[in-house]
Simulated scan of single mutants.
Amino acid sequence: MRVVVKFGGTSVADGDRINRAADSIAAAVEAGHEVAVVVSAMGSTTDTLIDEMKFDASEEDRAEIVSMGERTSVRMLKGALEARGIDASFLEPGRADWPIITDEYGEVDVEETRGRAEQCAARMRDGVVPVITGFLAQDHDGTITTLGRGGSDTTAVMLGNYMDADEVVIVTDVEGVMTGDPDVVEGARNVGEITVDELRNLSFRGAEVVAPSALAYKTDGLTVRVVHYQHDDLLAGGTSISGEFQNLIDLHERELVCLTAAGRAVRNQPGILATLSSALGEEGINIQTVSSGMDSITFYVDADNAERAEALMHEEVVADETLSSITREEEIAVVRVTGNDVQSQTDAIQQVLAPLAEERIYLYDVVTSATSVAVFVPWEDREETLDCLQGVL
């Protein structure tokens, strides 16, 4: 099996942890696996280097300086592997065999990087363990560039993809993906498997497990796992991330209605949303989407459930003095644009809305998440909306 293993900063924070990492790599190699290693800077080295730049550094100088953390890590780990009889070599920007190349826009040159990654994989077949600096890249002129926040994760999954690896293992200081933050909630436990879509949404909203930019490179056939650095077996345990993130434009096939409950400052009234959604849920009515304003909450449900849903919500409106009235609007369609880079594209919502404005398509609502934009339009305009949004993002 071909494996790319990424060790985060805490996993190689000192000599003892570097030795531990080397032991786990050596065990995998001795078991007959091809292994490539991506390494972050030791501990908080990168933060320290950044904090100590008490001057206005150019982008080129800044990248050179912060690269020293990863450059040190690969030499340390390569030396630890050699001490265990493992044939290893370190790769960093500036070397002829460096794999990750960016273009003049700072984006990864996919064709060049893929070709170099394949050459690296060929060396792995010969028994060499490449130890690669994470986070860093190099442009065609030889200038050091970086892959941004979470860049070491991105390095690992990208190379796993381009090397045709079987698995990428992210070694970090957490027990994989947890049901909640163990520092905040009691009884948090490890999630054995999670989809890439679920994890990307969690990552964009604060879960520091795998960088969202890295998951863009995950394919359906490439397994990604997250394990704790104290879990010495690289090939078992932790959380497995399944699936492949895809860019999709999806038209919900059934007509929707929107039910809006109005009340004074309902957003500041605890329990209102729970009361209304529970009333629908207890009767088996699925809620497609919820949106809210300061003085209203809107539920989108399938038109088949319209009358029953309105009656149930009306009962709650009458029973709760905070709420004043409920109204229903019919013949609504929803089109969802799910994109790999929605969160990172500052104009993502504009890209979705602009073509609809040009065609004078009325918008009932726009609901966004970390990875999608949903537009609610008249049912009669659904096909035109779908056509307008082809190719956005």
Rank of each mutant, 00 (worst) to 15 (best):
L273G: 04
S324V: 11
A306L: 07
V257M: 03
L256K: 01
P270F: 06
D295P: 01
E282V: 07
T275D: 12
N286Q: 08
T260M: 12
I297F: 00
E316Q: 15
A261I: 05
A265E: 14
N286W: 03
D295A: 04
V266E: 02
T298M: 04
Q269M: 10
A303D: 10
T275Y: 05
E307V: 14
S296K: 06
P270K: 07
M294A: 13
S325A: 13
T289M: 05
E315W: 06
L259P: 01
S292C: 08
D320L: 06
S292F: 05
N268H: 13
L280Q: 02
E244V: 11
C258Y: 03
A319T: 10
L273P: 02
R308I: 10
G243N: 01
N268A: 15
E316R: 13
S292K: 03
A279Y: 04
D295V: 02
M294N: 10
E321V: 12
A274V: 13
L323Q: 03
L276H: 01
I287C: 02
A279M: 09
Y300Q: 00
L323P: 02
H252K: 12
L259A: 05
E283H: 15
A279E: 10
V301I: 08
E253F: 06
S325T: 07
V301M: 02
Q246L: 14
V317G: 03
S292I: 04
I326T: 03
V318C: 09
E282Y: 09
Q288W: 06
R264K: 12
E282H: 11
H314E: 14
M294I: 11
A261G: 05
I285S: 02
E307C: 10
V301D: 00
M313P: 02
A303S: 14
T322M: 06
T322A: 11
E282C: 07
I285K: 01
R254A: 12
A319F: 07
A309M: 09
E253Q: 13
E307Q: 14
S278V: 09
L256D: 00
I287L: 04
T289I: 04
S242A: 10
S292P: 02
E310W: 08
L251T: 10
R267L: 12
A262M: 10
E283V: 03
R264L: 11
N268V: 09
A306R: 09
L276P: 00
R308P: 01
